[in-house]
Design a protein around this nucleic acid. Sequence first.
DNA 1: CTATCATACTTTATCTGTCGTAGTATGTCA
DNA 2: TGACATACTACGACAGATAAAGTATGATAG
Lengths: 115, 115
Amino acid sequence: MVEISSDVIRGYNDTIILFLLKDKPSYGYEIQKQIRNLSEEKYIIKETTLYSAFTRLEKSGFVESFTDDTSGKKRTYYKITDEGQKYYNDKCKEWDLTKEVIENFIVREVENGNN
Amino acid sequence: MVEISSDVIRGYNDTIILFLLKDKPSYGYEIQKQIRNLSEEKYIIKETTLYSAFTRLEKSGFVESFTDDTSGKKRTYYKITDEGQKYYNDKCKEWDLTKEVIENFIVREVENGNN
DNA sequence: CTATCATACTTTATCTGTCGTAGTATGTCA
DNA sequence: TGACATACTACGACAGATAAAGTATGATAG
C-alpha cells in the first residue's frame, strides 16, 4: 500500500485548509473530515497538525476566527481573509511549478512491454 | 515571480538525489549543478541540505560512498544501492498519489472569460 | 608568484512544521 | 449512566532545511 508521507504534504497543509475555507467559514473537526473525504481516505490530517495550522494561519493574517455555539456545540470558526485568498492563489501557482520541477526527477514505470 | 518553497520540495529531495544517482555514481557539487540545470534554475538545492541528505541516505542504506581523486580533486562519490533503487521506485508511486490528493484542493485559475 | 575564483566539502546551531501523548469538556444516544 | 462523537488545548520531541562560518585544494589571470 502506498502511503503519503507527511513531509510530502507538509508544504500544502495550509493551502488545503484555505481551500476549504474559500467559500465559507469552517472549523477544525469539519475541515478534518472534509480532507479525509475529499482525498478518499488517502490523506488524514492529524488533529494537532490541523490546529497548529489554524494558529499559524491566523498569526499570518490569512484567516480570522470567531466562535459560535448556535449548533449546541461551541466551536471556533475560521474565515479566510483577502490576504489568505491571495496566499492561496499564489500557492496554486507555486504548485504548478513544483509539479513541473519534481516530474523532471520522477520516472514513470513502463508496465511490461509484452503482449 | 513564483518561487518554490523548501517545505514543498522537502519530501522529494532524497528522491531527486537518488534519481541522479540511478545510472551512475556522482558527488555533491555535480548533483547540485544537475538539479539546477534540470529544473532550469527553478530549484537550487542548498549545500547543507544536499550533504545532510547524503548522510541520511547512507545511514538508511540507500547509497554507498567511496572516494576518488583521479580527477585531481578529492571527491566523495555516492552510488545507489538496490535498497535505494527500491525506495526511489516507491517514492515515484507515492508521487502519483500525492499529486492526485493535492490537486483536489488546487483551483486552476480561469484566465479571463472576456473577449 | 600571487590573488582570486571555483570546487568540494564539514561543523554547528537554529528554526519550523509535524505529531505522539495526554487531558478537558460537552453533547448524543442506547 | 456509560460509551461514543465532537471540539478542542497543552506540551514535548523530532526530523529536515538552512544560515553562517570555516577548511582545503586546484585552476586561472595578471
